[in-house]
Amino acid sequence: MRFTVTSAAFILGLSATVALAEGNLNIYNWGEYTSPELIEKFSKTHNVHVTLTDFDSNDTALAKVRQGASGFDVVVPSQSFIPTYIQEGLLAETNPGQMENAKNLEERWRDPAFDPGRKYSVPWLWYTSGISVNTSAFKGDINTWKVILDPPDELKGKINIVPEMNDIMFAAIKFEGGAWCTSDKALLTQVRDRLVEAKKSWLSIDYAGIQRMATGDVSASLDWSGSALKRRTENHSIAYGLPREGFTYGSDNVVVLKDAPNLENAKLFQNFIMAPENAALNSVYAKYGAAIIGAEKYYSEDMKGAPELVIPADMESKGELLTLCDPKITQLYSRIWQDVQK
């Protein structure tokens, strides 16, 4: 899954530039999440040879980085993992909050709880976690977890859940009226029973399940904003709902590793992607919102004014940043999640 920009650049006749590159930059990011145009532009602007490597989960990425000497300069973990990276001393304090382009950060992402003062991280893209529903199969209220946790008959056996423990546990806890990271056993019993009961109406627990909304096998799925936008462009009757019981939003963030071989280039990269025209390249590629003011000017037509990419004013208070719970509680949650999946 290694995609070297060198080869792409070579084909584009940029070999001369590459040969003159002042250095390298090794990026470790989610698969199909990095705009090739962005890389090409960065490569050209700063005369840097970029290598891109994919990971498929936050856990994989963290495990790899922990081993040390990974050779990567920047990693793009989800914000819920950033405190762990910081606590374990894996990151270089690059102070992106003080960089030239930091003025472009959206208010919501200027001083987040996971990285106060933006000492380490720069937002890559941000997302909400909600529900995609095929409105031709179900015409009712889609702004509630009820759709997937206590589904109406017309959706039974047509629901997909993405196997993201935190997202589904968050949904169930909120639906039962609890607070995230609760260890209230009575409530967690309800949560477990709710999930076990709801599972009978689920068709699949699978990332690929979201894509099956297009073929009609799946009529409702736990989903993320950008993904929901893609679904809607494929099938116009698909709508995205943010549950009023509470939903999460989050972001993936570019951090620089302490043992980065190309620290300066990594810093350049952090500043580079905070420019609206650059951030927009990523947005257009992955269909998620950039956390940068002014980026929307550079969005493609399908993204301009897309409801999936904004949190409506009346929902603002219902959203919270997804955090990792205490390990003991995580263990408890994962036991419940396993009970559901057995």
Partner: peptide
Amino acid sequence: ILLGGGRNLMIGNYIELQFGQGRD
């Protein structure tokens, strides 16, 4: 995962879960 829809774990998936999201 692909044909069972990931609803019913088999032992291979269960192991993967422990090393991934289960963090155990």
